[in-house]
Simulated scan of single mutants.
Amino acid sequence: MKNSIFLLIIALSFRAMAQPNIENASISTIKIKNHIHLLQWEGAGNMMLLSGKDGNILVDDQFAPLSEKINAAVQAVSKGPIRFLFNTHYHGDHSGGNENFAKMGAVIFAHENVRARMALDSTKIRFRQKPKPTPEAAWPVITYKEGMTLHLNGEDVIIFHVDNAHTDGDVLFYLLQSNVLHTGDCFMKGRFPFIDNNSGGSVDGWLNAASRALTLIDEETVIIPGHGDLANKKDYRAARDAVMTLRDAVRKEVKANTSLDGILAKNLAKDYDTTFGSGFIKGDALIRTIYIEQVNKK
């Protein structure tokens, strides 16, 4: 019961954090390369626009009420319809505009678990807590299991699934020629990760995803995180190392049969809160998530 209450508080906090002043939202455009732009509003997930002779390709689309503003921002960079829309995962601050953009003609791609969660397909997904289904028009029409590669607008875009990380449907996008990585919510700059274990996420999976991404990129890689400003490999590595240190410390305490209250009393995250506590997940919340995961493994 305590675990369920804690997860509910986290979910409500995430929802509150994700939608500040949506009526007055303004979409910012930041050029990374002439054909690659970050589209950003602080109340939802970061978007990436890949434009060029093959048309506009958009990664993530925030909330439905913002679709017209997002499309206007796209048109200001590159005239023409959005040809393909990709979701990094199924959360509404990254996929809430799917139905609107589908009606504009975009073809939606995502991991198969994204479609399964939107459709509440219990043949593919085991739900701990069932959300409401989204309209069928919002569902991805092309799905994949492990990943795929696009050859568009002068880029080889490597898309790869990472298992049970932020959710069970996360994918990362790496643009080979331009050395740009979009992580979705598998990385949020200056923030502890939100592990949605009601949607198949896990701390160990998040760490594996981070380590996999870090082996792919170099010090010159430009990273578009799920939330926050543009980042680099050093930023991503620092977040991975902090979470790994806390995971290992909690694991040690669990093996010693220390209670959750006893672990929290040790204030294990005190050295990281000032660096990674800018989001709604604070150190103690992450410690609780790690604890629950480790106890369930015993």
Rank of each mutant, 00 (worst) to 15 (best):
L264P: 08
A285V: 10
V203K: 04
N3E: 13
Y144I: 05
K2V: 05
R212W: 04
D185E: 15
I263G: 05
T123H: 10
M104D: 12
V114R: 00
K255V: 04
Y90F: 13
I224P: 08
E146M: 11
N3L: 06
E219P: 03
K103M: 13
I22G: 03
Q62D: 07
D196K: 03
L38F: 02
A242K: 05
A231S: 15
I287H: 03
N56T: 10
E99N: 06
G226I: 07
N179D: 15
Q177F: 03
A72S: 15
M148Y: 13
F127R: 09
V250P: 03
F173D: 07
T275I: 13
N267L: 01
D185Q: 06
D284A: 15
R128W: 12
D241E: 15
G184F: 08
F84D: 08
Q129P: 01
D284G: 07
L181T: 06
D121M: 08
I32G: 00
T245A: 14
F14A: 14
M47N: 07
E253L: 15
Q129H: 10
S26V: 15
T183N: 07
G105Q: 09
G43K: 10
L172P: 02
N113G: 04
G277E: 02
M1S: 14
G147N: 11
R191N: 12
I82P: 01
D170I: 03
R115H: 06
I82R: 02
L207T: 07
E136K: 13
T143I: 05
H37Q: 14
F109H: 11
P193H: 08
V171Y: 05
T275E: 13
T29A: 13
A11I: 02
G97K: 11
R212C: 09
T143M: 04
Q129A: 11
N100C: 13
V77N: 01
L176R: 14
N100K: 15
